[in-house]
């Protein structure tokens, strides 16, 4: 059943989204493990449909600095996807990839490149599982990274889903490697037509 607003998502559709989220995060974890050549574990992700203001509060309030990695999707599925994490999580993740032990609040060019590459790999893994589950061909842009106030970073997906409602699909994921924990949030914003196309692939 096509919807006109993300607030109209049915329970059945939401269960499907949650399942896609679980599978996507599982694939992202495997990809991250391979990239880092070490065992990464993942907690069961929490999938929610939330309002922007609530998401901003979840990630520490509008002025809290966060890292956002954003890419756009095109092809049979149009929209954008963001992977957002706290400054501390991004620092741990960059340190893991670059095998360094930096504790600075600022990020170097190398840190940004590493984060961009991680974004590419985990969102790519997420999208390829989405593509194979649905049989849709999905292309993604080169990801872009920004480090700024949560309100400002999240305004970008907020504006995008502001076109079709006030809620976005949020997947709260948590990766662990030894004593390093990384908490990240996937934010998926398919365009409404794409969303309806996605659901019709599952007979909904």
């Amino acid at each position: 059943m096509p919807i006109e607003n993300y607030s109209d998502i049915t329970d059945e559709q939401f269960d499907m989204l949650r399942e896609i989220g679980n599978i996507g995060c599982g694939n992202a974890t495997t990809a991250l493990s391979k990239m880092l050549d070490r065992k990464i574990t993942m907690k069961t992700p929490k999938v929610e449909l939330v309002e922007v203001s609530k998401f901003v509060e979840l990630i520490g309030g509008p002025e809290n600095p966060i890292i956002g990695i954003l890419l756009t999707m095109s092809g049979e599925l149009n929209g954008m996807m963001m992977f957002a994490m706290s400054q501390a999580s991004a620092r741990r993740l960059a340190n893991l990839v670059l095998m360094q032990n930096s504790s600075g609040a600022e990020f170097s060019h190398m840190d940004y490149s590493a984060l961009k590459e991680i974004g590419n790999i985990i969102m790519g893994a997420y999208m390829s599982s989405l593509a194979s589950l649905t049989g849709m061909s999905i292309r993604s842009s080169v990801p872009q990274v920004a480090y700024d106030m949560a309100g400002a970073i999240l305004s970008v997906p907020a504006i995008e889903f502001g076109r079709m409602g006030d809620k976005a699909l949020l997947i709260d994921s948590s990766f662990d490697q030894a004593d390093s924990n990384v908490d990240g949030y996937f934010v998926m914003i398919p365009e409404l037509d794409s969303y309806n196309k996605l659901m019709s692939r599952f007979g909904m």
Partner: peptide, 10 residues
């Protein structure tokens, strides 16, 4: 005073 936090593209 009146304030808004974290304006991005808005």
């Amino acid at each position: 005073s009146i304030v808004t936090l974290g304006l991005g593209s808005c």
